[in-house]
Design a protein around this nucleic acid. Structure first.
Lengths: 355, 355
DNA sequence: GGGTGCGGTGAAAAGGATTGCAGCACGCCT
DNA sequence: AGGCGTGCTGCAATCCTTTTCACCGCACCC
């Protein structure tokens, strides 16, 4: 049916072994012969049968990407990055949508993990225990946007993003800041909340009003917008661009002007941030790079085939230090000077901006 | 390393053949023995090696999905539907992003098509010739959002969506309609344009101003917005929600009020449509269902393994008729009565609405 | 009572690529 | 001249599952 290595070998007048080496380990074959084999292979349109190769090498040439929600622009962007980098490395990507469900996530890792060379697990919703269990399996695992003892990971500098946003608002004169946090149990929300309080503590006269946990979607923002107004804050940081957009939408429809009455800052710089008026000031996260670096880290961390595991004496080497990517505040139109003048001239407090 | 069928067979005291049958063809094995084998397999945590199975059956258990842009909410939603349905059928999905490039698209179909049971090709950018070539390969192909001779496809009723939008605008009193079309060569744009002219022709006094081809992204909408104003149209149909949002954004920032001065209608009902104010009137496309039906059609159309192709005498059977999904106009806040009063009372023209 | 059919089982081949090991030839060194 | 190293090449095993074919009793029918 399809052209096999045998066909190529026969046509080229060599053994299958030599044909295989001519294509995979060129330095082992005499140059003239090597070229001849390659030419024959190309002419016949030979494509190695991946199943047969996998069977003997234990490598599938596939990576698996598990995300909570493919439609969320954050994950879509990461997926795009993963996909691009994997293709450059000759790998295919199997994607799975866990529908924000930790249990399904675990199951997917178990089911798909067995048939791929590595799993990129994005913003895992699963518990620490489930993660431990998944790590105990013999498939290389890489976490995006979450750290976990013993696991390789690629994360963004959550706290620094918040710090930049706070510094920006502080410089504009804001002193009372509301925070619309992410879902309870979210690792990145915990990091951001932590960073928020630390940044605020280093800036004299700053108060933080915590509005609690908000569903990380548009409607979550709509729901929390009234709390923002009631809190008396002049600016609000949202966990997420989607939440920020929800807040923006509700404030505007209530007649609260943005940024004249209230400033709004998002997080992620998803494409939707520029779709609205006023355009959203937000923290840009290098989403595509997050995906690319995840693939690189996964491949470097576990270059060996899943099968050859037993050979390496150590249990599982040591998990490398997390890769931490920088983020960058993007100032657009949703932030401005607060309605009440700042309590002190900006110049006199500039020295207090956190490093 | 991992537990194989041999292990199960030995442990259960049967031959590998019987073990295989106990799991895959239960009716061929005596009930008592069958249950015993299954129990042993479960207890040992046996998982069949997919590569070995693929090697002999020719089936991979994988589908491939090729989309122009994973970050586009339209394709993200379709991908989600494809993924969900595939999982329900026990299939994995390999996704590939063609970056809106027809050549890359062809290459991906060629490269990935060889290692999957079928390919879902979404809004193909490739030419008809390239499509023919891809069809000539022996991998089942299913087109989403495009029809092509000899290919199975799942499409939406493009023309009817436009018809509904036009009827809505006509009923509101609009008579001069602008159309911001999709990219040149887009199959669905051709269908919509066709439907637009037919709908307009059936409504007396209606004019269509064609604004040409627009890049199907936010910036495309921004760029074309001024043409809308200059055209003197009281309403504009965009090829796409993203384009509609761009138009909306530019109009608003120019001081043109929506819908008081100009009504705007999008297409797709992507999540972003409700993120803005005014919320976008748009044509809702059953995106997830598009993905699910694509998988179903693909699986039904090509239930046999890729390998067993030669057996079926006919060239490739006949491609089944395209599955056509209905669409539905969703009226929100971006459409309203035009500034100039309608030329005739609404009641008197209601009978002229196209069917 | 022997042939026949059938339910159930096992031996063995097939599927395609990779790779350890052995062999071969040739050239160089002593 | 003989021995050895080296550079290439081929043989054959291996990966794991599925599936064909043959076989073996046993029951049933003639």
């Amino acid at each position: 049916m399809s052209v096999t290595l045998q066909d190529v070998a026969r046509e080229a007048g060599v053994s299958p072994a030599t044909a295989s080496r001519a294509l995979n380990a060129p330095e082992l074959v005499a140059p003239a012969r090597r070229e001849h084999v390659r030419q024959v292979a190309a002419q016949l349109g030979y494509r190695p049968n991946r199943a047969a190769r996998e069977l003997i090498t234990g490598r599938t040439g596939n990576l698996c990407l598990v995300v909570p929600d493919l439609e969320n622009p954050f994950f879509a962007a990461v997926a795009k990055g993963v996909q691009a980098r994997a293709r450059a490395l000759g790998l295919a990507v199997v994607v799975a949508d866990s529908e924000e469900d930790g249990h399904l996530e675990s199951e997917l890792v178990g089911r798909l993990g067995a048939q791929v060379d590595g799993v990129v697990l994005c913003s895992p919703r699963m518990t620490d225990e489930a993660l431990d269990e998944a790590l105990a399996r013999d498939v290389p695992l890489l976490l995006v946007n979450r750290e976990h003892h013993g696991a390789a990971s690629v994360v963004i500098d959550n706290a620094d993003g918040v710090r930049q946003a706070v510094a920006h608002l502080y410089a504009l004169g804001h002193r009372r800041l509301a925070y619309a946090g992410g879902p309870a149990g979210s690792w990145s929300d915990a990091r951001r909340r932590e960073g928020l309080h630390r940044a605020a503590a280093s800036l004299p006269g700053t108060e933080v009003v915590d509005l609690g946990h908000v569903a990380p979607v548009f409607d979550g923002g709509v729901a929390v917008a009234d709390l923002v107004v009631a809190s008396g804050a002049t600016a609000v940081l949202a966990h997420n661009d989607l939440v920020a957009l929800g807040i923006l939408n509700r404030l505007t429809s209530r007649g609260v002007r943005v940024p004249d009455d209230v400033s709004v800052v998002g997080y992620d710089d998803s494409p939707a941030a520029t779709l609205v008026a006023p355009a959203l000031t937000t923290v840009r996260v290098p989403l595509a790079r997050l995906g690319r670096d995840a693939v690189d880290a996964l491949v470097n961390h576990a270059p060996r085939a899943a099968r050859r595991r037993a050979a390496s004496g150590v249990t599982d080497a040591e998990a490398p230090a997390p890769v931490r990517l920088p983020v960058e505040l993007v100032v657009r139109d949703s932030t401005g000077v607060p309605p009440a003048p700042p309590t002190a001239p900006i110049a006199s407090t500039a020295g207090d901006l956190p490093a």
